[in-house]
Nucleic acid binder design. Structure first.
Lengths: 149, 149
DNA sequence: ATAATTCCTATTATTATAGTAGTATTTATT
DNA sequence: AATAAATACTACTATAATAATAGGAATTAT
């Protein structure tokens, strides 16, 4: 039940973009540096978020990444589902043909419920929530030595 | 976020044992046949459930596997946690030392909540529940050609 | 024209999962 | 005591997914 690093990296990168919302494009290099993620890998991770329309990219000099919509409008479900694919804990939940016992299998119902509660939880959290929470943490710790989020 | 086959196999095998509860030992071969799982692999999958005390095994001729306690007392959490290890979606949730940003990371809180709701759900379901549900399904389908659960 | 950036494709290393195999040990039955 | 049937244990292997790395093409501001 581990989440891939893709999902984690994408989430952290999107939080950076949420912080930068309304301030123009932010370079991949900068995101990668602040979050300590390989540039080249992050590039691949973010790609599907662009094709799905959550981020806008500007090519060329002074280009970069920015959110295509307000942080309030992007949930963790949007992000994770995009980079990770389905959140079904087992394949048969999405695709009944994956197993020939679906009609009689009680565990499938369980996995299905599990998927739903995870989705529900992830949908309940948007990027703006995380920005607020982040600000709170920063104040609470009283630290100013952390340039990283 | 995929569950391993270990977790699925263990769950299905435990349901077989729940059906067989009070009827003496059930052979691995029989469980494997009914659930269409490799015998040798299932053997390894069930091993930790024995060391944790959920199942009792009798060696030798006429030996086999049986639940060590009533089906009501064994939850899906018990089973899955035993064979799969922690249900934390990312390592830092269990082990703060896994990452040096735990103090400032808001996503960690999210993953932590995610872990908790999954655990809560899995703890809410025990083997007796699944046996009942299975019986219901069997009746509903009106099928008697399925010797398999 | 140049430098800075994203875009795209291919390759590789590492790890975890899933499974196979063989032998040792135990025990009921005869 | 011998035998057959079962679990216990250990080692190995194949496959697939993940997590990168690498390099050049395309685009754009200056």
């Amino acid at each position: 039940m581990q989440l891939s690093t893709k999902a984690r990296y994408a989430t952290r990168a999107m939080i950076e973009l949420a912080f930068n919302y309304g301030k123009g494009p932010m370079q991949l290099k900068e995101i990668a540096r602040r979050q300590d993620i390989s540039e080249k890998y992050l590039e691949q991770v973010l790609f599907p978020l662009r094709t799905k329309g959550y981020i806008y990219t500007q090519k060329g000099s002074r280009g970069g990444y920015s959110l295509s919509m307000a942080p309030e409008e992007i949930t963790l479900y949007d992000i994770i589902q995009t980079v990770e694919g389905s959140l079904a804990p087992v394949a048969c939940v999405d695709n009944a043909g994956a197993c020939n016992r679906v009609d009689i299998c009680v565990t499938r119902d369980v996995w299905s419920r599990l998927k739903n509660i995870v989705i529900q939880e992830l949908k309940s959290i948007n990027l703006a929530d995380l920005v607020v929470e982040q600000e709170r943490k920063k104040k609470e710790s009283g630290s100013n030595i952390m340039y990283q989020i």
